[in-house]
């Protein structure tokens, strides 16, 4: 096994073991932190598929996260308070299925438009579409509008009790591992090779006869659907779902997690989200002005650290 494989396995083992240990030793707070981190890591891994491997700088990924969360929140809201009987449920399969289906559809429709454009247009359009969903949700008063939606119930899944923080973490962790393996498999498949080839030289792939647009659209949909799944978990974790989840700053943060950890690597997005969440927590306790050092750090990383944390771990090789 290579050095990177060892590092990946070690990090993932630590992420599996440490949070429960914190929980059993009376530091339940750190388990919550780890659950949030793990869920955001799933979103970051999904973004890495298109951003890292596909070279598609999507600035609207938080929309999928938010839509996924609302796919849990809206059925639960109707189940609790009535109205729209057809939609009212706390069945986890239905909610999560809805989250994945809606985000896949959203990614399909917006992706079909966005992927016609290149470069900076693509960045701005993905951002604008995410903002469109944001304003749509804000305008629907039934679901809390600006104030968000409080649901006092979590998804019901056979064999799982998501009200137990340890089981929720376990679900998130297993999901993360599965998603990492799925993305890795996709990336190493023929499909993934075309996707990466198009990132390096689009013209060459087109000349070779590949319909690059279609490959990218499929990757975009897969990425959106995985992120929708992460959103469903996030909704279960917070039980408070607000438009704030899809604010464009959240999309920027997800991008940063990917770049900070190391784009186009298996472990990078996970490391990135871990570093991001831990720093945010640590700095947030020191001062209410924590955004200042945080922002400076972001700028510093872009200016001086190429390849992210994975680049540092590799020791400058490659």
């Amino acid at each position: 096994m290579t050095r990177m494989t060892w590092i990946t396995l070690t990090v993932m083992a630590l992420l599996a073991v440490l949070p429960p240990v914190f929980f059993w030793t009376g530091n339940a707070f750190y388990l919550d932190l780890a659950t949030r981190l793990t869920i955001l890591a799933i979103a970051a891994v999904s973004l890495n598929l298109i951003l890292g491997y596909g070279g598609l700088v999507s600035f609207g990924h938080a929309a999928c996260l938010g839509l996924g969360a609302y796919a849990v929140g809206i059925p639960a809201h109707h189940w609790l308070y009535g109205g729209m009987d057809a939609l009212a449920t706390t069945n986890g399969f239905v909610q999560i299925g809805l989250a994945v289906a809606i985000t896949a559809l959203f990614a399909l429709v917006t992706g079909a438009v966005c992927l016609r454009t290149r470069g900076v247009y693509f960045i701005m359009i993905t951002m604008a579409f995410a903002q469109m969903v944001y304003y749509l949700i804000v305008s629907i008063e039934e679901y809390g509008g600006d104030d968000g939606l409080v649901i006092d119930t979590r998804s019901e899944l056979p064999g799982f009790n998501l009200d137990d923080p340890l089981q929720l973490f376990a679900l998130a962790y297993v999901s993360l591992v599965v998603v990492m393996l799925v993305v890795r498999t996709i990336v190493n498949s023929r499909f993934g090779m075309v996707l990466q080839g198009a990132k390096g030289n689009e013209e060459r792939m087109v000349t070779l006869g590949f319909n690059v647009y279609l490959y990218r659209l499929v990757a975009y949909v897969i990425s959106g659907a995985i992120c929708g799944y992460a959103g469903a978990l996030l909704g279960n974790f917070t039980t408070f779902i607000s438009p704030e989840m899809m604010d464009w700053a959240r999309s920027g943060e997800l991008m940063f997690m990917v770049i900070l950890g190391g784009a186009a690597t298996t472990l990078g997005p996970v490391l990135g989200s871990a570093a991001f969440i831990v720093l945010e927590e640590f700095l947030g306790r020191l001062t209410i002005y924590w955004h200042l050092p945080f922002g400076l750090m972001l700028i510093g990383v872009v200016l001086f650290v190429r390849g992210g944390l994975m680049g540092l771990l590799r020791g400058g090789k490659e």
Binding site: L51, V57, F59, G119, V120, I123, A249, G252, M255, F256, I259, H291, L292, F294, G295, L296, M297, L298, I299, V301, V302, L303
Partner: peptide, 14 residues
């Protein structure tokens, strides 16, 4: 452009 976006995103926070 990705680097521009990320750095100026940090700048907004600052």
């Amino acid at each position: 452009h990705l680097d521009h976006v990320l750095a100026t995103f940090g700048l907004i926070l600052v």
